[in-house]
Amino acid sequence: MKACHAFLDAGDALVVPSLDRYGRSLQDLINMVAELRERGIGFTSLHENLDTTTPGGRLVFHVFAALAEFIFCTATTRARRPSVVRFPGARACLAARASPA
Rank of each mutant, 00 (worst) to 15 (best):
F61W: 02
K2R: 15
A95P: 02
A65L: 01
P100S: 09
A98N: 10
F64N: 08
V60S: 03
F61M: 06
R58H: 09
E69V: 03
G56K: 07
T44Y: 10
A90N: 05
T54H: 02
V60K: 07
G89R: 04
R39I: 01
F61R: 02
T52W: 04
S83W: 08
D9P: 00
Y22G: 00
F7H: 07
A75P: 00
R97M: 12
D51N: 15
S99I: 15
V15E: 14
R86P: 02
D9T: 04
R91F: 07
G56N: 11
L46S: 06
R97N: 08
P88L: 10
R91H: 11
S45I: 03
G57S: 01
A95S: 11
C73N: 14
Y22D: 00
F70Y: 14
M1H: 11
F64W: 05
T53I: 07
A92Q: 12
P88S: 09
D9V: 00
A96R: 15
V63G: 09
L46W: 08
V15R: 10
M32D: 11
S18T: 09
V60W: 01
G57C: 03
C4M: 11
P55G: 06
T54K: 05
N49D: 13
V60E: 01
C93P: 01
M1L: 09
G42D: 05
L67H: 14
E38F: 07
F7Q: 05
Q27D: 13
N31Y: 13
R86D: 08
L29T: 13
F70N: 05
F64S: 05
G56M: 12
P100L: 08
R91K: 12
L46M: 10
V60C: 04
L26H: 10
L14F: 06
S45K: 01
P88H: 10
H47Y: 13
